[in-house]
Write a protein that binds this DNA or RNA. Structure first.
Lengths: 386, 386
DNA sequence: GAAACTTAGTTTATTGAATAGACAAACTAA
DNA sequence: TTAGTTTGTCTATTCAATAAACTAAGTTTC
């Protein structure tokens, strides 16, 4: 009633998960190797592997190299046992992908958001999802779920409480999508999705504690602590864009003053750049690329402010890595120096021994891949508890 | 080898823990009630309870009220099955307690630290521990462990890497104490210990996500996320005293600028108060108590700066509660208004719906009780895995 | 006050998961 | 060929949880 009680089914779930994990990590490997790596008895492994084969999640792919005895039968995860949809719903675009169970992209669609009003945007979103579903090959489990990253605060029921740049309030996107498609739907904010994406498929692969800093129009952060997303008490932690770094600085629409994102986001950059005659990030990037001094100084300034906030993050979380993602990560060449210098100057020495400063490997796909990962891991946790 | 594999012993450990948890929570209750609350079968509960009785951790205390059938045999946890030592090693004091397994204080000793040089302090600490051990009644498990909270950064091996106000560096306190006493020793920093103490025995009882802000000479924080201490990658997270709240503010010894503790700690208060002719916190408290206007304004100012940092904490962690502890919590009557006002003004509205702002209930005993709790929970996790 | 119900806790037989160890299958090396 | 090795399965055993029957000890009802 209260706590999940322990019985034999629990053991089996645990051990099945261990076996599956071994296969996912170790690519082609034999039952004997799984037994050795996991510490499980050979007989146990055989039995669990058989169940996984019966469940179409694993298959035999012929014999491997002998090392002086009987040849091993190699196993691999069946990446095509099902497919997941990952969506990055941006302020002015929709980016979606159909991925297999290993996160390989099978189909991808990007379109600009024609009308950000909730009703119209929802229809466009559904269109994108339908098109992706139509491209899915036949598979044992079909579409295992839909994950969506959104630029706003999401509660534990998948309702978008507030998306400032879309001007949305209280949009129950999870319910809407699951009613429409009859599939499992997970909604989370763009930064959490990005964090998951980088942790699973990108720069932070298998790092236990990392902070993903999504620097776009605003700044969002996704926290992965002890290998899992930390969401706070009501599901909306990580609003670090509104960390105050100047107690008596600029007033922010959030009610606070001196919020980080007023100094270090794309918006902050563009505001300063407007007096130089630049209108968007792309123009600034190419100007920097061609070496314009004033633009380089602009980027260095943003880098410094990013560093101030990141030093705070490092001091608070002592993470293994901080990953800078979203649009601003494209400016890496012109940010990195001043950013690193500031962090080294400002973070406590003990932390610096270990923390890595990384840039997103998936580029603009971090959030989309993370959204897909939410769907995939949702599927795995369902089959584990069934 | 890698992952802990699941077997029947694991089930038994899990279920024993569930049963014990029920008994710890539900005070006197019967086997039948445990079965109902936990969902475990009556027979299973009977068997596990018998093991716990054999292990002296639980005892029968006679029959209870019948509700229309056979009278139940009531069970309770044997709080005196063992004792733990909890120590708060301060900058200028040593506070220690002998507590039973339920955290009731059996004996307590406080002394001022005569000489903060590591060798001398260690001897005084050992003296305190010896005296407390001598007061322990005979019990099945004896002294189950020693927990120590220290004002500094501690690594995963219980070595004090750096304690600025004690001027200690690289003191392997855990090894020193466990060699001396032959007991299990846990060391953690004072803020982590305080967080644990308040979460287990104080204002934050059974709250899942809380941030304990220890406002003393400096500011430290202890993070309890998902009901367990979050320690970061190397064991020293939570250095929020060095969160920069004024990007271009005062220079701090840590290398950063505008650190929170330069504006909101006891040290900050005393610095401002010196021009008014006050030398320590106690004088200021009594002046405030007698209504001196300038002193009240001083406290209000500190309250505001505390609020600025706490608003940041709330935005970052979305905790269920923030608990203000250590010496400055005594100033609650004169801080609370300006503090609450600032937090309400600066934290994002969504968070405020849920977050509670609390003051430490254990007062100066938070860290000591948390240290004892570290020893007790260490004991429980040992008997679970044995 | 006896019969009928209720509740507490134990006993018994069963289920199912993991395991050790025996074993068969399939290979290498000499 | 023969000896040794490695892989994977089979068999008997152990152990924890469980359902169901059962004993024990009450209360309620008429």
């Amino acid at each position: 009633m209260t706590t999940p009680t322990g019985d034999q089914a629990l053991i089996k779930r645990i051990n099945t998960a261990i076996v599956l994990e071994c296969i996912l990590r170790g690519a082609p490997l034999s039952r004997a190797q799984i037994s050795e790596q996991s510490g499980l008895n050979k007989a146990t492994v055989s039995s669990l592997v058989q169940d996984l084969i019966d469940g179409s999640l694993v298959r035999e792919i012929g014999t491997g190299q002998s090392s002086g005895g009987r040849k091993p039968v190699m196993l691999e995860f069946v990446a095509t046992s099902g497919y997941a949809i990952g969506i990055d719903l941006g302020v002015n675009y929709i980016r979606g992908a159909l991925v297999d169970m290993r996160g390989e992209i099978v189909a991808e669609r990007t379109s600009s958001l024609r009308d950000s009003e909730p009703g119209a945007a929802f229809e466009q979103l559904c269109g994108c999802i339908e098109a992706l579903i139509a491209e899915a090959p036949a598979s044992p489990y079909g579409i295992v779920g839909i994950g969506v990253g959104v630029p706003g605060i999401v509660d534990e029921n998948g309702t978008i409480l507030f998306a400032p740049n879309l001007q949305w309030r209280d949009v129950p996107l999870q319910r809407m999508l699951s009613e429409r498609f009859g599939l499992h739907v997970t909604i989370d904010n763009e930064a959490n999705a990005g964090a998951l994406g980088e942790q699973k498929y990108g720069a932070g692969r298998s790092i236990a504690n990392l902070v993903y800093v999504s620097v776009g129009i605003g700044i969002g952060t996704g926290l992965i602590l002890h290998k899992s997303l930390y969401k706070g008490s009501a599901g909306y932690s990580g609003e670090m864009g509104h960390l105050s770094i100047e107690a008596h600085g600029l007033s922010c629409t959030c009610g606070n003053r001196g919020c980080w994102e007023l100094y270090a986001s794309e918006q902050a950059l563009l505001k300063q750049a407007s007096s130089l005659g630049f209108g968007d990030l792309e123009e600034l990037l190419s100007a920097a690329d061609s070496g314009r001094q004033d633009v380089l100084e602009l980027f260095a300034g943003i880098g410094e402010y990013l560093g101030i906030g990141i030093a705070n993050i490092v001091n608070v979380f002592n993470p293994d890595a901080v990953i800078i993602g979203n649009r601003m990560s494209q400016a890496r060449p012109w940010l990195e120096n001043s950013l690193r210098q500031t962090v080294v100057q400002r973070a406590l020495g003990f932390h610096l021994r270990k923390v890595q400063l990384l840039f997103a490997e998936l580029g603009e796909r971090s959030a989309m891949m993370g959204a897909a990962e939410m769907a995939i891991s949702g599927f795995f946790s369902r089959i584990k508890s069934a």
